[in-house]
């Protein structure tokens, strides 16, 4: 009788454990690390945005350079800084700063504020998927892509 009781309790407990654990699967996809350095005329570029836009297969990925010009990519459904999935990509790089246009507006709080626009600090040819000459093919395992940007005539 005692063993019967213990067995019942064991199964009730097991049911509860499975019920609470449930089917919470991880939503993070498997990715391959992609990293590298961005330089402009040989000088590392800090705070530049880099995006890998898929041409075939692949998941769109993006990253930003640190003070040494090094970047690590991530993709929306992947883990932070853990790269993207294998495939062919075109590479978009840009870096801009906000500058005042000289025009002002009164915001609804009564403050006068500058209307800003952005100014590119790198050649704009690299800033769009349709004009960039840069390409990359991501493969399984670790990928390193260094890009040196130049002025176009």
């Amino acid at each position: 009788m005692k063993i019967f009781f213990q067995t019942i309790v064991f199964f009730i407990t097991l049911t509860w454990i499975l019920f609470i654990i449930g089917c919470n699967g991880s939503s993070v996809i498997k990715t391959d690390v992609v990293e590298g350095t961005i330089t402009y005329k040989g000088v590392p570029v800090a705070d530049a945005n880099i995006s890998f836009s898929p041409v075939s297969n692949g998941s769109p990925a993006y990253g930003r350079t640190d003070s040494q010009g090094k970047y690590k990519l991530q993709t929306p459904l992947g883990a932070v800084d853990q790269g993207t999935t294998p495939g062919e990509y075109v590479v978009i790089i840009n870096k801009s700063e906000n500058i005042p246009t000289g025009k002002k507006e009164i915001d609804p709080d009564g403050k006068e504020v500058d209307i800003m626009t952005s100014k590119s600090l790198l050649p704009t040819v690299y800033s769009s998927a349709t004009t960039t000459p840069l390409k990359a093919t991501v493969v399984s395992g670790k990928n390193v892509f260094d890009f040196d940007l130049v002025d176009f005539p």
Binding site: S51, Q74, S118
Partner: peptide, 15 residues
């Protein structure tokens, strides 16, 4: 602006 085109990924990579 004609000074470089910006994409949503520039915001996404702040994650």
């Amino acid at each position: 602006s004609g000074s470089g085109s910006h994409t949503p990924s520039e915001c996404a990579n702040m994650k």
